[in-house]
Design a protein around this nucleic acid. Structure first.
Length: 552
RNA sequence: GCGCCCGUAGCUCAGCAGGAUAGAGCAACGGACUUCUAAUCCGUAGGUCAUUGGUUCGAAUCCAAUCGGGCGCACCA
């Protein structure tokens, strides 16, 4: 509907410009906003104020001339110039009512947009090292990345979700050794302090022995380590997959770093960049030139003693993404990796691609709050709660909602007590309850002989012209705008805010207006309204990865 | 020392391609169940948008500085 308003305003502006000979209009874009106060109408436009400074003229006078042109449109009820020069437009109730009907005729489902226009986007997220179970910080990244992928898909992008597995390197050796030490411990043999000290490592060691047999400890150290490393990483990764699946997070691909090394693509790429001059040698090591792209110094890609670094693999990985033809690469990282952004931008540039094709999203730290006490999460202090624990304790719906209720890039306090409460204090149920109420209305309706309409757009929607209905109709029709704006800003939390807002409007409506009444015409129209609300609640909750129960 | 993020109501946070009187939830206080589910609704109260200066018709929003909190600055990943 905002698009319709924008069209009306743009055309009016063009006519006014022609009539008044305004020439300084180049580059002026018509921006249509929804004013926060109802009395200012349905839509507002500030073009007159922008133009005023260029024409050195009175903004209100300019606004009046544009407004005059808008008044002619047949779906416009009223246009007013207000404040410093806002043009406020109110559309006819009949226009809103019939727009509601279009909700049901939208080909792919209401709210879906074509912002992406089929563009290929890869969202890489979680990508936690397979050295231990996911903690709640990973959980936030998982909830955000997954919902972002859902939003982008909803907005018309061809989305590919990927998990990058760091399955090589020093840490993996340490991990393998840790299992071997634990295995020795199990057998009462002398053992050293393992690098990875978590309890889960003991279980893995026992499984490892059961699988390989006790003789594995007598193998040559290299051989034993290789087996232990592979087993441990595999076992931990299985656990991660399992947790994520239960958290309703899925991936199209689990991309192994090791596979690139085996294929030789990391070294090949280094050679290529050596030739192109983006990589040079110094003091026995190979360095990537990054300093002209914002990073403060060059970075080592191959150490003097031989092995390639993490960055080297990341260059190859992003080259691979580019080769696979993704127009946009979204990398979701923990906030502690922010220093890595400029480095990776430099990588993209070195690969000959536009750095703007890479968008990084940082997910900030989560602090747990229990009994009013904050528990700081930090790997350093060894205090961390696993995603599994929190999922089991508060449930997937509440956990996902809480993570996506706040902007990903601001730190959040996760109030476990509040999230666990199955009461009115918990915002997630406020929305789910609204959905359940919608569903229940149809149970009642059917009872009274009102079947769900097969063609809602043909129902007597002109009944929906009272303020109470219009308010809900207008809120519902904002859903596509929310989706669009989330997709372009790579945000998710506005969906949660919107649903909370919509639920408020709906509950208010429900409380003060009965849907199923003796008035058949009115009932049929209102059932369409409720059906639309039901659809938006379900779609919106699905974007957040939260279930939409039929009854509660 | 350099860089990034953050500072908005008692608490948790929106708002930040500059717009009209700064919002929501929770907590507090007062009301509403004979109705399609009270996991709901209605009302009251709550603010120096960290501070200072700048940009302009207009700044919570943009710029600079300062103060506070978090996090980075590896031939780790």
């Amino acid at each position: 509907m905002r698009q319709v308003a924008k069209r009306i305003a743009s055309e009016a502006f063009a006519r006014a410009s022609a009539e008044n000979g305004w020439n300084e209009t180049a580059g002026i874009s018509i921006d249509i906003t929804t004013p926060k106060e109802e009395k200012f109408g349905d839509f507002s436009c500030n073009v007159a104020m922008i133009l005023a400074s260029r024409l050195k003229s009175n903004p209100r006078a300019i606004a009046e001339k544009v407004a005059e042109q808008m008044r002619g449109d047949e779906i416009v009820a009223n246009v007013e110039v207000a404040g410093p020069g806002f043009i406020n437009m109110t559309l006819k109730p009949s226009a809103w009512a019939s727009a509601l009907g279009e909700v049901f005729t939208a080909k792919d489902g209401f709210g879906k947009t074509n912002d992406g226009n089929g563009k290929k986007v890869i969202v890489e997220f979680v990508s936690a090292n397979p050295t231990g179970p996911l903690h709640i910080g990973h959980g936030r990244g998982a909830a955000f990345g997954d919902s972002l992928a859902r939003v982008l898909k909803f907005a018309g992008y061809a989305v590919h979700r990927e998990y990058y597995i760091n399955d090589v390197g020093l840490q993996m050796d340490n991990l393998g050794r840790s299992t071997l030490e634990r295995a020795r411990e199990v057998h009462g043999l002398p053992f050293g302090e393992p690098a990875y000290k978590g309890e889960y490592m003991k279980d893995i060691a026992r499984e490892f022995l059961a699988r390989e047999g006790d003789g594995v400890l007598n193998l040559p150290p290299e051989e034993a380590l290789a087996r232990s490393r592979a087993f441990t990483a595999g076992s931990i990764l299985d656990g991660i997959r399992h947790d994520l699946a239960e958290f309703r997070v899925g991936f199209d691909e689990w991309f192994s770093e090791e596979s690139m090394h085996k294929a030789g693509s990391v070294n090949n790429l280094i050679d290529l960049l050596l030739k192109s001059g983006h990589i040079y040698e110094n003091e026995g090591a190979l360095w990537l030139k990054t300093d002209d792209s914002g990073d403060d110094k060059d970075r080592v890609v191959k150490r003097a003693n031989g092995p390639t670094t993490y960055l080297a693999a990341d260059i190859a990985y992003h080259k691979d993404k580019l080769d696979r033809g993704f127009d946009i690469m979204v990398d979701v990282w923990g906030a502690d990796h922010h220093g890595y952004i400029s480095r990776l931008k430099a990588v993209i540039a070195a690969l000959g691609a536009d750095p703007d094709r890479l968008a990084t999203r940082l997910v900030q730290i989560v602090n747990l709050k229990r009994g009013g006490e904050l528990i700081a999460m930090s790997t350093r202090s060894g205090v961390f709660t696993t995603l599994r624990e929190i999922m089991d304790e508060v449930g997937v719906d509440a956990t996902r909602f809480f993570f996506n209720m706040r902007s990903a890039d601001s730190q959040m306090d996760f109030d476990v007590d509040l999230a666990k409460k199955q009461s009115d204090e918990n915002p997630v149920y406020y929305i789910q309850y609204a959905h359940a109420r919608c569903a229940n209305i149809f149970v009642t309706a059917l009872d009274k002989g009102f079947a769900k309409s097969a063609s809602p757009e043909n129902e007597p929607l002109s009944q929906l012209e009272r303020p109470a209905e219009l308010k809900l109709v207008k809120k519902l029709l904002k859903f596509p705008d929310v989706v669009s704006s989330c997709a372009s800003a790579l945000h998710v939390h506005p969906v949660a805010s919107y649903l909370l807002d919509l639920a408020g409007v709906f509950h208010n409506y429900y409380k003060h207006n009965r849907v199923v009444t003796e008035d058949a015409e009115l009932t049929r129209a209102r059932l369409v309204l409720v059906d639309a609300a039901r659809m938006v609640f379900r779609s919106g909750l699905d974007l957040l990865g939260v279930s939409a129960p039929e009854r509660m």
